[in-house]
Design a binder for these strands. Structure first.
Lengths: 210, 210
DNA sequence: ACCTGAACACCGTTCAAGT
DNA sequence: ACCTGAACACCGTTCAAGT
C-alpha cells in the first residue's frame, strides 16, 4: 500500500463529491433501470440524483452506451452467480440442470429491464466491450461445465457440450423473453407449470438422465 | 362506390401530397429500420423522406410507439405467412415442423431490426394494440395448428398443443435472438449445423416422430 | 485528475393556423 | 379532413474553464 497520502477523506468531501463516482453512477443506473425501465435512464437524471454535474459521468464512461454496457456486464456477473448457485444447491445432476434453467428464468422475471439491456443489441455493434464479452462467456460456461460434467458420467447425448448447452440456453432465453413480454399470461395456464414442463423437455432433448 | 367526387388526382397532387400517407409512412419506417436499425428511425426523418411535414404523421399514428406497433404488426403478418409456407412446402409432418423452425430463424436473421421491434417490449406496456395482439396470436397459431395435426396422427407427446408449441416457440425464439446478437459466431461452429441440430432436438423434445 | 456551466445539435410532441 | 411552421420541453455530447 502507498506510504503517505494527505488524508483524502477530510478535504475532498466537498471538493469532489464522490470517492467512487464510477461505482455510484453504475449503481444509480441499475436502480433507475430496475425501478422505471431503461427508457427512463437519462444521463442528466443519473447526475442529478447523485448531486453531480451532468457531464461528470464522462470522466468514467465514454458515453451512454458504455454505461449500459457496464450495466449489462454487472448483470451477467449476477447471472453467473445465480446459475452456479442453483446448480450446486440442487445437488447437480438432472435436478441441478433443471434448477439452473428455473434460476435463469427467475432472474429475467425479477429483473426484466436489466435482462433486456443484457440482451439488447448494444453489445456487438462496434468495438466489442471485452469486460462484457468475458462476463457473458463466464455465465454461459457455468452451463457448459454442468453439461460436461453430466456427459462425463455418461448421462447426456454425445455431441460437444457447447452445442448441447446452446440448445438449453436458447430454450430458457426464449422462454424468459416470452415471460417478461407477458406472452405466457394466457387464460388457463399456470406459468410455473409451463416453466417446469419446459426445462424438463430441455433435459429430455439433451438426453439428460441422472 | 360514391357517385360524383371532383376528380381527386388532379388538384390534390400538390395540396395533399399523398393519397395513402399512412401506408407510405409505414413503408418508409420499415425501410429505415431494415437499412439503418430502429435507433435511426426518427419521425422527422420519415416525414422528410416523404416530402411531408414532420407532424403530418400524427394524423395517422397517435405517436411514435403506435407507429412501431404497426411495424411490429406487419412483421407478425409476414412471419405468419413464412411459417405457414414452410410447413406446407416441406410436406407437413416432422419435416414440416423442422422447416417451420428454420424459417422462423431465417426471418429473424434476414430482418434483425424488424424482429427486435416485434419482440421489443413496446408491446404490452399499457393499452394493448388489438391489431398487434391478433397478428402475433395468428403467427403462434400456425405452430399450434401444426402440432395439433401431428398430435391427431399420434406423433407427439400427449400434452395440450399450446403447451408443446410454447416449448418449440421459445426454443427458436431464443435461438433467433442469440443468432442476431452474433453470439452463435464462435470459432469452429457452423451456424446452419447448429440450427438444424437445434430444431431436431426440439422435435425430439415434443416426441415428434413422423 | 476531477468537476462545472454554457452551448450545440438533435429529438418527440403540441398547437394555432392555413386550405 | 388533412397538412403546415413555429414553439416547447427534453435529450446526449462537447468544450473551455475552474480547483
Amino acid at each position: 500500500m502507498p506510504a503517505s497520502r494527505p488524508s483524502p477523506e477530510r478535504k475532498s468531501r466537498r471538493a469532489y463529491h464522490h470517492g467512487n463516482l464510477r461505482q455510484a453512477l453504475l449503481a444509480q443506473a441499475l436502480r433507475t433501470i430496475h425501478e422505471d425501465g431503461v427508457d427512463a435512464l437519462t444521463l442528466r437524471d443519473v447526475g442529478a440524483r447523485l448531486r453531480v454535474s451532468r457531464t461528470a459521468l464522462y470522466r468514467h464512461f465514454s458515453n451512454k452506451k458504455a454505461l449500459l454496457s457496464a450495466v449489462a456486464t454487472e448483470g451477467f456477473r449476477e447471472f453467473r452467480l445465480a446459475l452456479s448457485d442453483a446448480w450446486d444447491k440442487a445437488g447437480r445432476g438432472r435436478a441441478g440442470f433443471e434448477a439452473q434453467g428455473l434460476a435463469y428464468v427467475r432472474f429475467a422475471r425479477e429483473n426484466p429491464s436489466h435482462y433486456r439491456v443484457m440482451f439488447g443489441g448494444a453489445l456487438r455493434e462496434d468495438g466489442c466491450d471485452t469486460d462484457l464479452d468475458r462476463e457473458s462467456t463466464g455465465a454461459f460456461r457455468v452451463l457448459v461445465d454442468a453439461i460436461a460434467e453430466l456427459q462425463r458420467a455418461g448421462n447426456t447425448r454425445p455431441e460437444p457440450p457447447e452445442l448441447l448447452a446452446l440448445v438449453a440456453w436458447s430454450g430458457v432465453h426464449g422462454l424468459a423473453m416470452l415471460a417478461i413480454d407477458g406472452q405466457l399470461e394466457r387464460p388457463g395456464v399456470v406459468i410455473d407449470d409451463v416453466l417446469r414442463f419446459h426445462v424438463a423437455r430441455l433435459a429430455d432433448a439433451l438426453g439428460i438422465r441422472a
